[in-house]
Design a protein around this nucleic acid. Sequence first.
DNA 1: ATCCTTCGTTGACCTGGATCAAGGCGGGAA
DNA 2: TTCCCGCCTTGATCCAGGTCAACGAAGGAT
Lengths: 253, 253
Amino acid sequence: MKELAHPAAPSAIDLRGRAHCVDCAIRQHAVCSHCEVDELEFLSAIKTYRSYRAGEPILGMGERATFLGTMVEGVASMSRLLPDGRRQVVGLLFPGDLLGRPFSPVSPFEYVAVTEARLCAFDRPQFETALRETPSLERRLLEMTLDELDSAREWMVLLGRKSAQEKMCSFFALAARRALRLEKRDPIDGMLLVLPMSREDMADFLGLTIETVSRQISALKKVGVIELIDARHLLIPSWSDLLDAAGGDSELD
Amino acid sequence: MKELAHPAAPSAIDLRGRAHCVDCAIRQHAVCSHCEVDELEFLSAIKTYRSYRAGEPILGMGERATFLGTMVEGVASMSRLLPDGRRQVVGLLFPGDLLGRPFSPVSPFEYVAVTEARLCAFDRPQFETALRETPSLERRLLEMTLDELDSAREWMVLLGRKSAQEKMCSFFALAARRALRLEKRDPIDGMLLVLPMSREDMADFLGLTIETVSRQISALKKVGVIELIDARHLLIPSWSDLLDAAGGDSELD
DNA sequence: ATCCTTCGTTGACCTGGATCAAGGCGGGAA
DNA sequence: TTCCCGCCTTGATCCAGGTCAACGAAGGAT
């Protein structure tokens, strides 16, 4: 996972991966959700699917990105590495989310596939031109960016003011809501939550250490806020208990 | 400061405050910076200046906002109050910054004037219509939102992974850069930095307590990274020393 | 089957920053 | 001038979460 020959080269590119946009399962969440058929056709012409294995880098920090794209499957992380090795995950990307920084060729953050992932990628200059010429695209990007900004600020509250326990609960709530959204289902008590990431990724997302994450999970299991099946699977017996323990959750993600 | 009769009512509204946009000192930083003369004239027709005293609330959390606007003078904070009183400042607004959440009438954060402040306010529905009909406005808002998102993520790194000392230095660097930008000057060693806010606001911005802020300032003074004139004024003897002590600063704000 | 190697858990201990508490200082009111 | 009162600083103590360390469980490779 650490020693891949070509960090920015996906493990597979399907150059002719022209699945029909109209059939795209995640389009309603994506930057192209407001597009008309002809606009979709144009995008379709410049799109390429890229697949990544879990742990594989997608874009490096400070690297010149040649593309950007929509997450189609899987989860990716966006993070910053400090000179001394400390790491902060500043965002998780779920299907529908846009990966990459429009209008800026070098991203100040690195993107890594957290699970096996698939990206609907666009050549950067072409996509940026499309953005400028297609109001429905630009408008949707603005909507998405405003929402992401709200989420980022929400997360700042968590990072700055919440206890380790509250952070864990907020994270579970976030992960559960994002999973539910894709399945178009509402939260229910007793639901299963699949954790898409390692303890280390969670720790780096929450501003904690893996040990603290592990301990808090054990503590939450003991008080019954969660029921642990195995390291990656848990049940949420009571959604409202979870939100209470999350300390002022704003239902945003 | 805590017991104001009408939280959302500014201390003064100049209804005929129609200073010419073309002469506006901060327009180049504002959402209207890409506008043509005719577009400026339209905005001018729907704008109103609002003044706030230091400490005065501008928009409450969860409150239905009737306006949003560009900061013209002064500094405002954007923050979230947790049910138990903990507070996190998620952003500072300097002249040129847009105050308020476009396309969403209720802001999930509260805005407070940190110093005496002046706002170029627009009626929300009218401004949103203008946004939708004016590509130069919408495009500029997108640019600004993308930049703010980068800054927010930068701040997440600080909140999640930096030490109290690094946080203080990053804050000084941020405040200095924002001040310099307005004056169109470059950072120089020995420059004076005016702190626009109280220890409490800094603490809430950095995810610290006032005591820690105070102690770190003393510590930084002792090691010579800053020179304290009084509680609100300090010198930055060496810009590079400051950035070193800030631990991986990305020059962003 | 056996060995790694990675990941997660748990325990023991430490420490950075929070908390609690006491003054200092400066500006406005009387 | 004196007295507040809101800020800021500093000291003493505490504790949530970090650090260090050991170990178990679950794959993969051979």
